[in-house]
Design a protein around this nucleic acid. Structure first.
Lengths: 206, 206
DNA sequence: GCCAAAACAGACAGACCATTCTGTTCAATC
DNA sequence: GATTGAACAGAATGGTCTGTCTGTTTTGGC
C-alpha cells in the first residue's frame, strides 16, 4: 500500500515553515502552507500566496498547474515534514514498545503547545472539501496509513492479541486529542489522551 | 421553531434536513445547512443556497444580514437539531449512568452509519475558519459545552472521583470517533471508541 | 374583498478569483 | 561576453462572488 518506507533523518520542526526555502518553488510551498493551514484552503487566494512568497504569478503557475495541484503539493510536503519531526522525536525514545507508544502523546503535547498550532492539515482539509475532492481524501488516507503502520509495528512488538483493533483505538485517541486541543487551545488534552492510552494498553496486555 | 430554549422532546432526525421547512426562513436554513455541511462553507455560494431553497435572494437577505450571519444561524440550528436527536435517543436508555454513557457510542454509530453523515458541522467549521472567525469558534464551544454538561451529570451519578477529567477523556473519545469515521467512512469506529470507553470507565470506578 | 407585509424574479454593481499573457530582468553556463 | 532558461512585474480576461435594488406577485389578517 505504501510505495516506499519513509526515512526520517534529522528531526526539524513539525511545520513546513521551519524549513529554509531555497528555491522559488519552496518559497511558494512554504507561503501557501502557512496561509492555507491558518486561513483555510478556499479562503486563501493565489494573490496572497505569491505576495507572501515574494514570487511572480507566472512562477507559481510554472511549478504548479493549478491551485488544486498546489493544495495537494502543500499537503504532501506538510505531511512529510510533520512525519519527519514526529517519528524523529519518537525514534529518540529508548525503552520498550509501550514507552514509545505512550511517548506519542508527549510529542503531541509539544505540538499542541506550539503557538502556531493549527490542528492537523489533513483533518482540516477533509473537513473543508469532504465529498468533493478525492485527491485530498487520498492524501489524508496515505498520511494516516503511515501513522497506523508505525503504531502496528509497536503493537506487534508489544505482543497484543488484536493489533489492528489496538491501532484503531490509538488512532481514535490521537485524532480526538488533536481536535480537542485545536478547539480549546488547551495542549493538555494530549495528557488526557495519554492517560487514556496507558489505561487501554494496561488492559489489553493479557 | 428553531429559537426556543433547549428541550429535547421527541427524537427526530439528527439533521436539519429531516425537519419539514414551513417558512421561507426555514427553507433557507435547511438548504444552506445541506450545502454548507456537504460542500464546505466557503465553497458554497449564496446563489446555490437560494436555488436549492427555492427562494429569492432578497428573501435571504431579509432574514440574514450576511452570509456570515447565515453560517452562524445554520450552525446554531444544526447543533440544536442534532442535540435534540442525540439526547432524545439517550433519554430512552434506562439503566444506570454507566449504561447511558456507553450508549453514547451506540447512538454515534447510528449517526456514522447514515449515508448522509458528513462529520460534525462544528469540527468542520472550526477546521475551515480556524483563527479567523471567533463567532464560529464560540458556537462550537457552546455546542461542546452542552455535551460536557450532559457527560458530567452522568459521571457525577456514577460517582467518579474526577468528573472534569473523566468528561475530558470521553470528549476525546467522541471527537476521535467522529473524525475517524468521517475520514474512513467506517461507522464501526464508534464501536472501537465504545470499547475504549468501557475500558476507561471500568478503570476509574474506584 | 382589502391591504400590508412578505416572497418572488431577476438585473445590477463592485470586488475578487484563478488563470493566461506580454514583456523585462536576472543568473548561470558555454 | 553571449545565450538560455528561469524568475520577475503586472496587465488583461472571463468568471463568480456577495450584497443591493427595482419591480411584481403572492398571501394572510381584518
Amino acid at each position: 500500500m505504501l510505495d516506499k518506507p519513509e526515512t526520517y533523518p534529522v528531526p526539524q520542526g513539525w511545520s513546513l515553515a521551519d524549513i529554509p526555502p531555497r528555491t522559488a518553488r519552496d518559497r511558494i510551498l512554504v507561503a501557501a502552507s502557512g496561509l492555507f493551514c491558518n486561513q483555510g484552503f478556499a479562503a486563501t487566494g493565489i494573490d496572497a500566496v505569491i505576495e507572501k512568497a515574494g514570487t511572480a504569478k507566472a512562477t507559481l503557475y510554472n511549478h504548479f498547474p493549478s491551485k488544486q495541484a498546489l493544495i495537494e503539493a502543500v499537503l504532501e510536503a506538510e505531511g512529510r515534514t510533520w512525519r519527519g519531526w514526529f517519528f524523529g522525536r519518537l525514534a529518540q525514545v529508548d525503552g520498550p514498545a509501550q514507552d514509545r507508544i505512550v511517548a506519542v502523546f508527549d510529542v503531541l503535547h509539544d505540538w499542541f503547545a506550539d503557538p502556531g498550532f493549527y490542528g492537523c492539515p489533513f483533518i482540516n482539509a477533509v473537513a473543508e472539501f469532504d465529498t468533493e475532492d478525492s485527491a485530498v481524501r487520498c492524501a489524508a488516507d496515505r498520511h494516516k496509513e503511515h501513522l497506523l503502520t508505525w503504531l502496528k509495528a509497536q503493537l506487534i512488538e508489544l505482543g497484543v492479541p488484536d493489533v489492528k483493533e489496538a491501532a484503531r483505538s490509538l488512532a481514535v485517541m490521537i485524532d480526538g486529542a488533536i481536535v480537542a486541543a485545536q478547539h480549546s487551545r488547551d495542549p493538555t488534552f494530549a495528557l488526557t489522551a495519554r492517560a487514556l492510552a496507558v489505561c487501554y494498553l494496561d488492559s489489553i496486555r493479557t
